[in-house]
Amino acid sequence: MKLKEIKNQLMEVHLNYSSRNSKLILEVLGQLKQRAVEQKDQDSAKEIWCLEQILEVQDTYLDAYKALKSGEYYNGWRSLERTDIEYTFLFRHFKEHDNKYWIEFINKHTTQYQSLFPYKAFVSPEYLKKEVKCSICDQVINIRNHCGHRVGEIYNGEMCTRLITKVKLLGGSIVTSPLQKYSVCFPTDPKTGQRVDHYNYSYVKFVIDRLQSPFDNWDIHWTKKRHPHSRYSHIGRNDKCPCESGRKYKDCCLPKSGVLRPHCQIEFSVKPPEGLSMFEYTD
């Protein structure tokens, strides 16, 4: 397999995603990169790193799609977070923003999928970095006698990162806007000790059920709309308003034509499978 063929495979991911051999592509890229490094050809080594990264972005996005299709929503969420992180690594080095590798498409849809999830609480640690090493030269980072390798830059076809080798944990918190979004809060069943997934994934399910390919385009628009009072007949006049304003129902939305709730409008560019409704009410 030659570099040109690999580029073609990456460009045609929307056609070959279910049959391509990512492991083989990665292996060949690794060999080509090694050769470039041996020849001290830093530009080629960096270009190959970009291709490896494009493959990673595409594969993690496909993993997310597969997981969501099979109803494994949390796994899908984790893959989306990975896709987002890998895209961030690639962004500063990737000059071809014409979407020929579907990268911009993936980035846009990753954000859209994330916006559909119900997660609001995350566990997040707070810690001190007591010893940090450079991933390129393995030197302990010293603020004045710096090794000179910049985080995020590519050296010999590898991205420079920091390896935290010693930490002091100060605490953990439950937060709504975490640094990383993997650590979603789930309750545990006290009898079995197993995680209980109590979240309502109806928005995610609505979209994923109507897609036939991970590369079908769809758009989302978040607005607010008044929903009929009949859907809130179980709410008392003196209860808190279901619009979550904090005011009493009778003093807030009850006198109005409906309850003001977030409204999600989704547009599909490919017709969804027959038999699926185009509307869904959720709370």
């Binding site: 997040s124 640690p125 707070e126 810690y127 001190l128 970095k129 007591k130 940090v132 010293n142 603020i143 004045r144 006698n145 100060l170 953990g172 918190s173 937060v175 806007s177 975490p178 640094l179």
Partner: peptide
């Protein structure tokens, strides 16, 4: 410049995305 001795330089990782 940075106002710390080399050996005392420590970074704090907070838990929010600010």
């Amino acid at each position: 410049e940075i106002c710390i001795e080399d050996q005392d330089f420590t970074e704090l990782v907070m838990h929010w995305d600010l």
